[in-house]
Amino acid sequence: MKELEKTKRISIATTLFILAVLIGLFTFKRPKNTFVHTTKNTLEKISNQNYLTSISEINNPKYVFVDIRSAYEFEKGSLKNAINIHTPDFLADGNLKVFKELKNVEKTIVLYGKNPEEVNLPFLLLYQLGFDNVKLLTIELDYVQNSLFTKNSTVEISKNNIAAFINASQKNAGLQTKITKAKPTRKKIVVRQKKKKAAEGGC
């Protein structure tokens, strides 16, 4: 009888244990959007691969342009055939579906915005979420008389040589700090020669 009680206790403990584990498993929620790439992978990608594309490749049939600006800006003017997905809505269900579909049909998602810097981080986010087919369009958008103009833009170009500028300024100033000795101008002193007076006097 004592033996029986012992097994009872063991079985109760087992069921409780299993129950706890099951509850844990069912209530465990995976975050909806998980990263596919680690930070290390991402860093490798951005330092090795070419993810930039310029406006000259705009006619590539594989490209699908995604405008990341707000709907208002998009309405004002956008690239031809572009779709609008505003950055804050990237992770909304419908938009993720669009990205996934584009990936499945092997199209390249080309993001663009007001300038490349604005697109930079949304691009990075999409890449980390596993969309390897994302590229970044290096253009700047501008409005001239209510129509949209695109301008090719560059990224990470050092525009000015600051060290040279500072040196030049010091050099220029250096020339002026030289103490300029004013040359003493020769004074011409004309000594009037006295007219030789005729011998005077005399008796």
Partner: peptide, 12 residues
């Protein structure tokens, strides 16, 4: 693999 903060947090 999902190291660090969540995607939603990163986006915000």
């Amino acid at each position: 693999k999902n190291e660090g903060i969540s995607a939603d947090q990163l986006l915000s």
